[in-house]
Amino acid sequence: MSNRDRPLSPHLQIYRPQITSVLSILHRATGVALVAGLLALVYWLAAAAAGDAAFAAAQGFLASWIGRLLLLAWTFAVFFHLANGIRHLVWDMGRGFELKTVTASGWLVVAVSAVLTLLTWVAAYGLRGSGT
């Protein structure tokens, strides 16, 4: 990087966002978000092992509005990363690289993760009610 004036490849701010590029960075972002989710899961397991007081504190946090917001975000992140991860595995087999297919599979991933997120929360509230 000795010559700072040399031309650079298109910037994120200049390059028009496309379904391919947006989902690509979203895959990384949801992956990082799921690391936080993994920390929360291990905290929850440790609290369950520790005893009633620790577990009640963990459940209290997760049931708070900020806890529920985090859980909602993690639900979408897990389904998106899962669906888009399968899309990546198909690419690894050398399939689905046609532009039309890449666009279609991208929107399919978005639709599947949105629907599964909604279904999960409807099921969770339906099974236990909103009071708990």
Partner: peptide, 21 residues
């Protein structure tokens, strides 16, 4: 490996919503 494990986990957590220790 995480594909079936994640699906099992999400279903399990939904079933355990609001469960006590």
């Amino acid at each position: 490996a995480l594909v079936p494990l994640t699906l099992w986990f999400v279903i399990s957590v939904v079933m355990l919503t609001g469960a006590g220790r």
